[in-house]
């Protein structure tokens, strides 16, 4: 053993930060830059700087047109109305479901949860078809009403309520899941303690539960608003031809009127209306996740 016992000190190995990691993440990161970040910047630039024979010049022309055009404005207002109504309806429907799922331990709860999540597995195009078959003219509801000797319903198909019903249906699963995850932070002890000092059920809901899931409610609303504000398929298939929601409006301007500049202007305007919700949503997701 004496051979190695002479005891030299090994050189200090610096902990190297290898750049291999950067290499591995390069492809998806470049895709994000090219297909998300650049298009957004480019959208703002191309709509504000107009190409003229003498070069490019600053112009807010397309924006002025949008905000002075009656048709564009009515499209915007129907979009705002739809988004608002959907958000309120979603909360009114999903909060009771989530509360029930959080505090029930009966066998029915599993079935209810399965049903509430089920729409996630139904693509919106199938939902649209089902909607028309059930609520459309001569649909199943009409059939049943007729069989019972009742008059036909006024079908929501092709009215402003069509997209509302479809969008609410489509957004139930994630809203319930987000609210349920928020309710997971309310401990049973907190509620039992409140009951112990004499709070009734509604008071427990108002003073104990709601304040604690406030953030989750906002996240759920933000997520729904982002999805609904520029939704396309459901309003395109179920909604009226005019006024139309921003999604179909942008699509028509882009593909049928061949007017990308105005279409992109409309896109930038939807960004503007959703930016608060978008930033809040992203911040909440980021906060929940440490890389």
């Amino acid at each position: 053993m004496t051979t190695i016992d002479s005891g030299h000190i090994a050189p200090v190995q610096a902990e190297r930060r290898r750049p291999y990691g950067l290499l591995l993440v390069a492809a998806p990161v470049l895709l994000v830059v090219w297909l998300i970040i650049w298009p957004i910047i480019s959208a703002v630039i191309t709509t504000l700087w107009v190409q003229t024979p003498e070069g490019s010049e600053f112009s807010t022309g397309t924006y002025q047109f949008f905000f002075s055009d009656g048709y564009s404005l009515s499209n915007l207002s129907v979009t705002l109305w739809t988004t608002g109504v959907c958000a309120i309806l979603l909360l009114l429907i999903c909060l009771p479901i989530a509360l029930y799922l959080r505090f029930s331990d009966s066998k029915v709860a599993g079935y209810v949860q399965g049903l509430a999540i089920f729409p996630m597995f139904v693509p919106s195009i199938i939902l649209s078809f089902a909607f028309i078959r059930v609520l459309g003219p001569n649909g199943t509801v009409d059939l049943l009403a007729n069989a019972m000797g009742l008059p036909k319903i006024r079908s929501p198909y092709l009215t402003a309520w069509g997209p509302v019903i479809g969008l609410v249906w489509d957004n139930i699963p994630l809203t319930v899941l987000i609210l349920l995850s928020g309710l997971g932070n309310v401990s049973n002890q907190a509620i039992e303690a409140a009951r112990d000092v004499g709070a009734r059920k509604l008071q427990v809901l108002w003073y104990i539960i709601l304040p604690r899931i406030g953030n989750s409610v906002l996240v759920a609303i933000s997520f729904a608003v982002l999805g609904i504000f520029s939704s396309f398929t459901l309003p395109y298939v179920l909604g009226p031809a005019a006024p139309e929601m921003m999604g179909p409006f942008m699509q028509r301007t882009f593909r049928e009127l061949f007017d990308p500049r105005n279409a992109i202007t409309q896109a930038v305007i939807t960004f503007g209306f959703c930016i608060v919700f978008g930033l809040f949503y992203v911040r909440s997701v980021a906060k929940n996740r440490t890389p």
């Binding site: 504000f229 520029s230 896109a267 949503y281």
Partner: peptide
């Protein structure tokens, strides 16, 4: 995810 999806698609379509 910070932007409404269809608006983003239109912006990408512009590119």
């Amino acid at each position: 995810h910070a932007f409404p999806k269809f608006g983003l698609l239109v912006a990408i379509a512009g590119i």
